[in-house]
Design a protein around this nucleic acid. Structure first.
Lengths: 208, 208
DNA sequence: CGAATAGTGTCTCTTAGACAATATTTA
DNA sequence: TAAATATTGTCTAAGAGACACTATTCG
C-alpha cells in the first residue's frame, strides 16, 4: 500500500551529488517539477522537517522553501509540469484537499510566514508585477490576511511608510472607474513602522 | 592546515542513526557539548545552512537552533562542557571573536530572529526566570534591541498588552530602592498590538 | 536625610480608523 | 446620467513618548 498515492504533494526532490547549495536545489526542483522560472520569483527558506516517520519509505529530512510571485501560469500539458496543478492553500488547510506526508503542516507554516512578513517587510510587493496599483497591493493584504481593509485608509497608510512603494508614473485602466496611478517597489525591505494586521476576531492566546 | 583550528564554534553534531528527530538531536548535542538541560530552555529552529564548501572537510548541511534561557551557568571543568565557554554575540558580530565555518552568519541570523520575535511574541519572558520584575523584562528588551527605553512608559505599555504578563504576587528587593512587584508570563504568545522597536538611527533601506 | 529604584499622572503630538466628499472613467 | 473605482479631506478616539511627581527602600 502506498499511503499517499494520489494525494497532492509539494514539488521537491533530493540534493544532487555535485554538492549543490540547497537554495539552488530548490530552484532546480521548481523548474523541473513545476516549470517555473526561479529568477522571476521570491524564494526564501521556510524551515526544515525531519521527524522520524514523516516519510513512510524511510528517513528523509526536507528543507522547505516559500515561493512568492505574481501571475503564475497554469501547468501546461506536455511539459515537465504536466503532472502539476495549483491548489488553494485554504483548501489544504481546511482539509478539503488531501496532501501527502506532513505537507499540510508545511503549507500552514508557509501561510503563517507570509502573513507575518506582510506586516514588517515589503514582501507584499513580491505578489505584484513590476508596477502595480495600490488597490492591487491592498488585495494582496486582504487575501493573505483574510480580512477586509478600508481602501481610503490603506491608500494613505501604505504611502506614508517611507521607501515602501514609489510612484512609477502612468496609470492603469480599471473596470469602469477612474484609472489608478501606478507604483513600484521601493528600496526599503523592512517597514518602519510595520503595517499591523487587524486584531483577529478575539480568539484568546495565540500559538505557542 | 586546519582552517578553523582554535576558533570558537557553536555546539553541534550529527543526527544519530536511530532516526532521531532533528529537534531531539539539537537537545542531545546541547546536553552533551554544553551540559545544559534542554527541558529548561526555549529552543526553536533557526534555519538550515548548506552552502557547498561551508565545511572544508566535506559536504555538511546544518540545521541551526536558537536557544533562549535565563541564568545559564558557566561551563564547569571536568564535565562534558569543559571545553565550552560563553562568548558575547556582539563580539562575534563585530569580529572581535573569530568563529569557525559560517557560524558568524548563523549568530547574526539568530540575533536578528530574537530581535524580531521580541516585537510580536512573548519571547522576552523566556529570558527571565519563572517570576520577574518589569525592570528585568525591560533589560531584556534593551539588551537584545540595543536601545534605551523609558522605564515609566515601558512599565505601562507592557502591562497593557493583554495576556502578556500577569501579576505573580509578592515583591523582589532591589539594590537600594523600592521593591518591585513580581510578574510571570501570561497565556498569550503572540502580542497584539506588537511592541514596536524604536526606529533604528536612520540608516536607510533595511536588508533584503 | 539623600540616593536609588518603583510606580502613577498628565500633557502633547501622532496615528488609526470611520466615513463624507470629490475626481475620473465606462456603460 | 448612473455605477464603479480612485483619491482627498476631516473628524475623533486611542496610543506613543516626554517628563513631573509620588512611593518605598537602603545606607
Amino acid at each position: 500500500m502506498e499511503p499517499f498515492a494520489g494525494d497532492q504533494a509539494l514539488p521537491g526532490g533530493f540534493l544532487n551529488n555535485a554538492g549543490e547549495d540547497i537554495l539552488d536545489a530548490a530552484q532546480r526542483e521548481l523548474r523541473e517539477e513545476a516549470d517555473l522560472d526561479p529568477s522571476r520569483l521570491h524564494l526564501e527558506q521556510l524551515g526544515t522537517y525531519g521527524a522520524p516517520g514523516r516519510d513512510p519509505r524511510g528517513r528523509v529530512v526536507s528543507v522547505a522553501y516559500l515561493a512568492i510571485a505574481p501571475g503564475l501560469p497554469e501547468p501546461v500539458a506536455g511539459t515537465d509540469a504536466a503532472g502539476a496543478s495549483w491548489v488553494l492553500a485554504d483548501d489544504v488547510l481546511a482539509g478539503c484537499v488531501k496532501v501527502a506526508f506532513d505537507h499540510r503542516r508545511i503549507v500552514a507554516d508557509g501561510v503563517e510566514r507570509a502573513r507575518r512578513k506582510l506586516e514588517h517587510t515589503s514582501l507584499a510587493t513580491a505578489f505584484c508585477g513590476e508596477t502595480f496599483t495600490i488597490s492591487e497591493l491592498q488585495q494582496v493584504y486582504e487575501a493573505v490576511w483574510g480580512v477586509h481593509l478600508d481602501p481610503r485608509n490603506f491608500y494613505r497608510k501604505v504611502q506614508k511608510v517611507s521607501g515602501f512603494i514609489l510612484p512609477a508614473g502612468g496609470e492603469r485602466k480599471t473596470t469602469g472607474g477612474r484609472p489608478a496611478r501606478l507604483f513600484r517597489a521601493g528600496p526599503r525591505a523592512v517597514l518602519h513602522p510595520p503595517l499591523v494586521r487587524p486584531e483577529p476576531p478575539s480568539d484568546d492566546e495565540g500559538d505557542r
